[in-house]
């Protein structure tokens, strides 16, 4: 058994910062290189959502909490793209590094594990943020957007993409084959997103489901973001931030532990 090298302050020196920056660069280069698979799909999907749900169906629905349906779902849809893209970026990139074994380039180098994790996470956040901006721009073709609170909006985007980047990392550590990469997004992430108040307010749900929805972290993210844009939320925004930070910290510690043990990367 090799002793796990717990993160020390010595991990934060110039040398390991260069290592971290290198991973981020590599990650950005990767999703830019395959932009047709990474940056274009959210444009198409979101445009379809806006046309069909926002425009065609939304015009029959009328308003939710005083806002046209289109404006109401924009915030949810932006968040949905941010989450899925952050997650997808880290899970695919890290898993293919394992699969092609170029992860070994990092393991043999004196780069601290915490910097490996942070590098992938910041890479995922960059893709998340970029996707968020792109989708926002697409939304502008369908409706006008006025941002109620820029700081809340921006920080919730960053926090959410951080949380789902870390979660994607954990998924990739456990993944043994490509199927394992898509299982979580299909069976967990998508349902949670659809039940996370993207398309409706939980006030519209019967009592039990209102309460059940509260265990869904995506609900907090979507509502906090909606508050940033529209100034309305089903739940307390401060509480939402707290929940997201708590989940992130939990996943971060867990990911570090897997990395130190070398789960799925060292035999």
């Amino acid at each position: 058994m090799s002793k796990s090298i717990t993160p020390k302050l010595s991990a934060f020196n110039r040398q390991s910062f260069v290592g971290f920056a290198t991973i981020v660069q590599r990650e950005v280069r990767r999703f830019c290189r395959i932009w047709v698979q990474t940056l274009v799909p959210p444009i198409i999907t979101m445009a379809l959502y806006f046309v069909i749900f926002g425009h065609l169906i939304g015009s029959r629905i009328g308003t939710i909490e005083g806002y046209p349906y289109m404006q109401y779902i924009v915030s949810g849809l932006v968040m949905m793209s941010v989450i899925t893209n952050s997650y997808a970026n880290v899970v695919t990139s890290f898993f293919s590094s394992k699969f092609q074994r170029n992860i070994e380039e990092m393991i043999v180098a004196p780069i601290p594990n915490i910097m490996i994790l942070l590098g992938f996470v910041v890479g995922g956040m960059t893709r998340g943020l970029l996707t968020g901006i792109i989708v926002m721009v697409v939304a502008l073709f369908f409706t006008h957007i006025q941002i109620h609170n820029v700081w809340i909006t921006l920080s919730i985007v960053l926090l959410a993409s951080m949380l789902f980047s870390i979660a994607g990392f954990v998924n990739a550590m456990y993944a043994k084959k490509f199927d394992d990469v898509s299982i979580v997004p299909t069976f967990v992430l998508t349902p949670l997103t659809y039940f996370g108040g993207v398309f409706y307010s939980i006030d519209m749900l019967p009592g039990f489901w209102q309460h059940a929805s509260l265990i869904n972290p995506i609900l907090y993210i979507v509502n906090a973001f909606r508050f940033g844009i529209l100034g309305i939320s089903d739940i307390n925004v401060g509480f939402a931030f707290g929940i997201i930070i708590l989940f992130s910290a939990g996943f971060f510690i867990f990911a570090m532990r897997l990395l130190n043990k070398g789960v799925g990367i060292r035999s």
């Binding site: 110039r14 040398q15 390991s16 260069v18 290592g19 920056a21 290198t22 991973i23 660069q25 590599r26 380039e105 990092m106 180098a109 004196p110 780069i111």
Partner: peptide, 8 residues
């Protein structure tokens, strides 16, 4: 990239 991992 490999050099970067070594902090260069």
């Amino acid at each position: 990239t490999q050099a970067g991992y070594y902090g260069i």
